[in-house]
Amino acid sequence: MDSTQLIAILGSIVLQAAPLIIAVCGETISERAGVINLSMDGSLLLSALAGFVAALLTGSLLLGFLAAAAVGALFAAIVAFGSLHLRQNQVAIGFVLAMLGDSLSAFLGQSYTRLPGPSVPSWHIPLLKDIPVLGPIFFRQDAVVYFALLLVLVTWWFLFRTRAGLELRSAGERPEAAFSRGVAVRKLRYLYAILGGALVGMAGAAYSLSVKIGWAEGHTRGMGWIALAIVIFGGWSPVRGAIGALLFGATKALATLLQRSFPQVALVAFNAIPWLLMIVVLLLVSGKLAAPLLARAPAALRRPLRSLLQAAPPAALGQPLDES
């Protein structure tokens, strides 16, 4: 394999990871504010369908993405309403919505199966595209990739560099403290859960309009759960989450290449890699294994190592707050 091929493969990895990155950013925002949106898998499916159908019928990609975002936001709003207002278990509601989104997409999408439809055109960014190596990998893609990359930076900046981001995080970490300091915790949680859900919806449209164009039953099945795991792996940071999504894409690409290089190894061995990786990675980031490891590390290394390995969820993730 020569370097052009390697660059081409890396470019594909970036493209295929783009929807995952968008979904991970959305879920990170939601969880940072204290709301787990476990419905992601169903929400991705239904929004992928909605995005494709809307774009197909109207001919407008923008409307496709908006329709998908609306579906994602609706799912998130149901989770938020159920937990924040009705004080029900977020995990249970999310799980049911994940199932329901799957069956709804299968039912409603029946007549749109495999139809040729619109897709996001590729557009190379002038100047940037000519940067050696990085240009072909990151800047000869389509708008979805640029949106995903930009979203990572904006989300990171918003979460960690703005006052509103601080309030968002405080709603997820110490809602009582935030409330006592005048933060409207519940309102914020609604806002960011719905915003996060809308991003998940756009990720769905990113699949059906850019990465896996068109619609078929079960189009993105499983990706929502993987995105949820990547949020954990990413330590609830959009940057680390994006790296996680890219690494995940890389392992899948590697699995495809390995299958061709090692025909004697059973096919399923390569398909198992992402799932084995999921277990290993979650083992690594869980406090139980990481903490003793960190304790033994030299003090100078502890901080960089921790930011690499450790991932504590927002302290009040999934917990209700009584504001009355």
Binding site: L38, V91, W225, L228, A229, I232, W275, L276, M278, I279, L282, L283, S286, G287, K288, L289
Partner: peptide, 11 residues
């Protein structure tokens, strides 16, 4: 291992 049963289970 501290892996939440939802994700361990899915994998």
């Amino acid at each position: 291992g501290g892996v939440h049963e939802i994700f361990g289970g899915l994998a």
